[in-house]
Design a protein around this nucleic acid. Structure first.
Lengths: 225, 225
DNA sequence: ACCTGAACACCGTTCAAGT
DNA sequence: ACCTGAACACCGTTCAAGT
């Protein structure tokens, strides 16, 4: 952990912003947000904390960078498609996948106020696809706002309210403060069991999309007279 | 700020867990999560940091306590009603209201792993109402999971992706990193404008509830043959 | 150009005193 | 019983050196 990274040929790899962000992301995934400090991050890269300031502006810049990485994953997993419905569907799933893959880092997407370029590019791509198929600019943006808000919010609440790793029954009592009443423990147990989280998400997504579509002014007809 | 609290009669009010939690909540609302430290919290109460440890277990205990306060507000604002539909509707709005009233504290609802008793009581009350009107226990819990996940997630994403305070156009450029391309700035501006957030939330809630209801096994009929 | 030692103000937390 | 001084290891960040 504390050893300096070297190439196969044995020479030291110089520090760089991307390398710092990758290490930060890894550290957060492995040991949680609280475990990220400039000191530990430096150690992870075989360097003292102060060296990091030659490549990043500060801790907040590192956090922003990690959020940028998350959106990059979404961008790569969900390119816009000819049919905008397919596109936003895959976007919603890509967002959820990223949140589930990085449960420790994901809350920063909403708590870190900066919006990274990668996030804007994803939105842009899907807006363009929707406009190409006849939606107005305003409707397209409203669509993307709804879908991202739903997908991001639902996923964050999902991992945050702990459906538990796979089976949550063992750990549920540890989520409660020691003194809780017997009947509330039972509530917690019932509430925490998510039988089919994927299906629940998909169901909600389906409802949202169907609702949005039916409120569209008029489907632009591309084939018939 | 640094003065010790006193009663109208002039005697010192002793420290207590509730008083500490109220001060912590206030401090987070006013100056942000990062501004909360045991030292500052003590100062706010006219006391040194170490004194707090006589009434709370540590900083994490304080954070859990603040989350408990948030759920208490929800509990008070959304009592269960004879018709469960009204009840969960008011619950969803109560959750959103709390998130909007405490944007700095709200993310802790999902990042603080402990589930407070006040949260369990709200769920319990509405589950009971739903069961009284013929839903099975399992369906009632699924209903409450969906509604809380939607309401909490949507609201958090809403305040997190910054629809901006009232008009967001002035500040939007500050959410972007300095070097972003011109066309992406335009994307950000369009994406950040929420014309009627309340209506969007209500629309999604309506869709979710209608969808859930139509997937219910059979409406229990209470009046006709 | 990039890394570091020394230093700063600020953290969370403990423990042995004080009253 | 409750508050505090002194102390600890650990933060983020700066700046003047080193190489």
């Amino acid at each position: 952990v504390t050893t300096q990274a070297v190439t196969a040929a044995g020479q030291r790899i110089p520090l760089s912003r991307p390398r710092i962000l990758a290490a930060a992301s890894q550290l957060i995934d492995d040991r949680g947000l609280d475990a990220l400090s400039m000191h530990k991050l430096g150690a992870e890269l075989g360097v003292k904390a102060m060296s990091l300031y030659n490549h990043v502006a500060g801790k907040d810049d590192v956090l922003d960078g990690v959020v940028e990485l998350l959106w990059s994953e979404v961008e790569q997993a969900a390119p816009a498609t000819p049919d905008w419905r397919d596109g936003v569907r895959s976007l919603a799933h890509a967002v959820r996948d990223v949140v589930h893959r990085h449960p420790n880092a994901a809350p920063m997407i909403i708590s870190q106020p900066t919006i990274p370029a990668s996030a804007l590019r994803v939105v842009q791509a899907h807006v363009v696809a929707a406009v190409n198929h006849g939606l107005t600019n305003e409707t397209a943006y409203a669509l993307l706002r709804s879908i991202t808000t739903y997908a991001l919010g639902w996923s964050l609440a999902e991992v945050g309210l702990r459906g538990g790793p796979p089976g949550c029954s063992p750990a549920v009592s540890e989520l409660l403060r020691p003194g809780v009443a017997e009947d509330l423990v039972e509530v917690a147990e019932n509430f925490c069991v998510r039988h089919d989280p994927e299906a629940e998400f998909e169901f909600g997504l389906h409802l949202m999309l169907r609702g949005i579509e039916s409120s569209l002014p008029r489907p632009s007809d591309t084939t018939s007279p």
